[in-house]
Amino acid sequence: MTTVSMTVNGKAVSADIEPRTLLVQFLRENLRLTGTHVGCDTSQCGACVVHLDGQAVKSCTVLALSCDGATVGTIEGLASDGALHPMQEAFREHHGLQCGFCTPGMIMSAVDIVARCGHHLDEQTIREELEGNICRCTGYHNIVKAIAAGAEAMGASSPMQHAAE
């Protein structure tokens, strides 16, 4: 067992873990942050996407120990003061989810796409950027619409704050 410490959703956390523990296992099993999901074992589906030091990563492919001292953001930390993040709101408004299982990863990826590609996203860009996230329910149509709208809303609501994320 080895001790790992990091900041998750703004809170300092620490635990003794097996060295082979994956970040997603640490989040789900040790911290009981079960919003981050596991949908595959080959880093393909993206249900496990979280933000590690501000960048989207697949937490099924990151060792928790390698995140020692890092800052991690999960779906549970996205809404602030009870108000939904604009991207969360956009997924609801545009029916960008059905069973909801891929949704946390989709939303975390979407926020990252906006951070990298800006607030004005065309359909082709969104579809290409979603290469690493699989949804079996929606056929992506409404996810694409939700991300485009969420990106615009992020720009309109507080451009400085979200650009910094």
Partner: peptide
């Protein structure tokens, strides 16, 4: 109508079987 169940899914509060302990 926008879906009632979405609130928990978009905030990571869904309760799937693997979330049961």
């Amino acid at each position: 109508v926008r879906r009632k169940e979405d609130q928990r899914f978009i905030t990571g509060k869904g309760q799937y079987t693997d979330d049961v302990n």
